[in-house]
């Protein structure tokens, strides 16, 4: 009797905590969504109850017609797709070679990559600026792609190599006996088996550029080359408080991300734990 009473209190407490956390999690998101549709520009005029100000699509219209938003979106998409594709190609070949071949300086290279992956690439940002200037890649999207790819490589090569190390060597040896070349073993055996980790890599390296701020700020100068993070940031600087337009612009980016995350949460958990814990 007392035990079942205790259990009921227990589950009520848990439910109460879950509801409180839900409110805290959802509250700012609701405000962002409501601001995206609210008339007016300034946050000061907004009601404290979400969606109480009425609805208008004016901000979306403003973004699409009066600002460079479509251009920022396109630029960011180009950078994200190229970074993702480039990282996949370079990291998977690199990982395959590190996993399957013996060659001079292999040990030293593996060690230096492990050490490099701890240092964030923007501590060298002044130098990256000058290097890009030297290569004529300043204010270009491909320059930004190169910076992202290079910064990720030490980590991603290790990640993929660790995965490939667990693929039985008997598989490639069998193919090799049948006369398959290195490239053929790589493309017909190793790559298909590594698909889970490569998918994870493609998704994460695609997602990262969407909201990075420091490198675009340094590398991209001209207005037509800006990315989303820079553009959205410019709506809410101290000089400029255009919260409702910012909210509308943010909503357009956030929705695909949220849908994707919720749809893939099961495999997300699996790849997070295998990527982070087992190594």
């Amino acid at each position: 009797m007392s035990r079942s009473w205790l259990r009921r209190v227990n589950s009520l407490v848990i439910l109460a905590i879950l509801i409180m956390v839900t409110v805290a999690v959802v509250w700012p998101i609701l405000h962002m969504m409501s601001a995206a549709f609210a008339p007016g520009n300034n946050i000061a005029g907004l009601s404290i109850v979400p969606f109480a100000d009425g609805f208008t699509a004016a901000h979306f219209e403003y973004l699409l017609t009066q600002t460079n938003y479509p251009r920022w979106f396109l630029n960011t998409l180009i950078v994200a797709v190229c970074t993702s594709a480039g990282t996949l190609v370079v990291a998977s070949t690199g990982a395959y070679i590190f996993s399957r071949f013996q060659f001079a300086f292999k040990r030293q290279m593996l060690m230096s990559m492990l050490i490099l992956e701890v240092f964030p690439s923007f501590v060298g940002m002044i130098a990256i600026y000058v290097v890009l200037y030297r290569f004529g890649a300043l204010d270009t999207l491909w320059g930004l792609v190169l910076v992202y790819m290079a910064g990720n490589l030490p980590f991603t090569i290790w990640l993929v190599k660790s995965y490939m190390d667990n693929i039985p060597r008997a598989l490639d040896e069998a193919a090799r006996i049948d006369g398959a070349s290195n490239l053929r073993v790589f493309s017909t055996i190793i790559l298909p088996v590594s698909r889970p980790i490569l998918t994870f890599l493609a998704v994460t390296s695609f997602a990262a550029p969407w909201m990075d701020f420091i490198f675009p700020k340094m590398v991209l100068r001209s207005p037509e080359n800006q990315t989303l993070a820079l553009g959205l940031f410019s709506f809410v600087t101290d000089k400029n408080n255009d919260f409702t337009n910012f909210a509308a612009g943010s909503l357009i980016v956030a929705v695909p991300f949220v849908v994707f995350f919720i749809l893939t949460q099961k495999s997300l958990i699996a790849s997070l734990s295998s990527g982070a814990m087992k190594e």
Partner: peptide, 22 residues
């Protein structure tokens, strides 16, 4: 050698050189 070259060159010029530079 060819397979690793892109990775080595990218890391060398965009990670290692900048670290030494700074």
């Amino acid at each position: 050698v060819v397979g690793l070259a892109p990775a080595v060159i990218l890391v060398l010029f965009f990670v290692i050189v900048p670290l030494i530079f700074s």
